[in-house]
Write a protein that binds this DNA or RNA. Structure first.
Lengths: 234, 234
DNA sequence: CGGTATCCCCCGCGATACTG
DNA sequence: CAGTATCGCGGGGGATACCG
């Protein structure tokens, strides 16, 4: 697999930069607001760290991202003007995936990734003034899965924190969920109300919090993408 | 490189199908109207035939293309409804490549590929009623290039044929060009008139044909994409 | 935290030859 | 024309350990 396609076509040259393995997913993380190395890596846990470094360097060399070295030894990755113009591509990839693929396969289930994404999509403005601690516990997890299955979400007025070890606060709301069901809800494949009815997802806590909880979740950016109209006979 | 990214995110799942090596380029060919195996392969000469077969099977399994077996033993590849929805992605990739990359690198120069693409972008309606035979001869070709450098284009009212061996007809118009210059013109990086002035491209033949020739060429689909506004100090 | 450095395996892929 | 079959290699990338 020698690099490059040997074609002057703009599509081919763009592919040499954009369509490398993991690259669109790295860009997705940057568009989602990730800036630091470990932040990016948390959104893509299955990429090895050396490979993530390599891809970031390649994107930098291609002028897609700019690396800023912060004084404290940290790095910071920002999309360049050219990089920002990949936004519609990520958008369309997600739209296509939402319309034409089944995403909730066992091999794709990952409770940690689900929580990491969910954390970014909380409607801060709807949260009550005082801190709310929500504990999530997942069941129905694939045998091969080696990550965490219990999480604490600390919801504060202007900030959300995700913990994988008990932060010690009193829990206000308990969420117990089948991982596949919660993933379907996140992706817009199933209504939260429906999963609550079938008890694949259960909420336990003060009535007002149980009632308000669904309104805090924005779900995946692609949850609302319209599905293809079923063809006749399909 | 085990397949898949292990993420339920629609972007990731779409990437598993779309962002494989060569796949966007195969789709580009299908959008350009290629339907048969060798037709697709002519647009992507550097892919090995077994690998092209493999990619086509993968796209078929993913529901992106449909293969029709014709009675004469030929196959025919068509984009499915899902496949057609990749159109904006190919468009965006080409647009990005046109705006942000330099495409006319030595490693990308390929006279055969240039002619094969040029052939598809002739304005049939502007051709004169009788056949016009144009002979192209390229110079300035990279030493590593092993393809043809002389071509005959048979322009007829409703059809264009490309030959790499002398078809035997009398030549009406001779085009002699530097390969890089002709590629730049094709990609919209340089005006044909400019290349004619510098004599990187020369036209020899009847005056009326020499004059009409530029109007027959539509150039690359991306030739007209607006370039980024130069940043101050760039 | 944000990377390097090293080792090594595996499989993606090209090359080549063959077939209906 | 449109593939299939087989072989062998090279390097992409995972695992692991180390560093400033």
């Amino acid at each position: 697999m020698r690099s490059g396609f040997g074609q002057f076509c703009p599509v081919a040259v763009a592919c040499e930069i954009f369509a490398e393995r993991w690259t669109p997913i790295i860009l997705r993380e940057l568009f989602n607001g990730a800036e630091h190395f470990n932040e990016i890596h948390r959104g893509i846990p299955l990429i090895s760290r050396p490979l993530l470094v390599k891809r970031l360097r390649e994107l930098e060399a291609a002028g897609v991202i700019v690396r800023e070295a912060l004084p404290n030894g940290r790095g910071r990755y920002c999309l360049s003007e050219a990089g920002k113009e990949f936004a519609p591509l990520i958008e369309q990839l997600g739209t296509w995936g939402q319309r034409w693929t089944s995403r909730v396969e066992r091999r794709n289930l990952d409770a940690g990734l689900l929580m990491w994404n969910l954390r970014r999509r909380i409607v801060l403005e709807l949260l009550p003034p005082q801190r709310v601690v929500v504990r999530f516990k997942y069941g129905g997890i694939p045998a091969a899965y080696r990550g965490y299955r219990v999480f604490w979400l600390l919801l504060e007025r202007m900030q959300v924190d995700l913990c994988v070890v008990d932060p010690g606060f009193e829990v206000d709301l308990y969420v117990t969920a089948d991982l596949a069901a919660m993933t379907r809800v996140w992706l817009g494949d199933e209504l939260l109300e429906s999963a609550l009815r079938t008890r694949e997802i259960e909420l336990v806590g003060k009535g007002e919090l149980v009632k308000a909880f669904p309104s805090w979740l924005m779900l995946s950016r692609f949850a609302g993408v319209p599905r293809p109209v079923a063809a006749a006979g399909g």
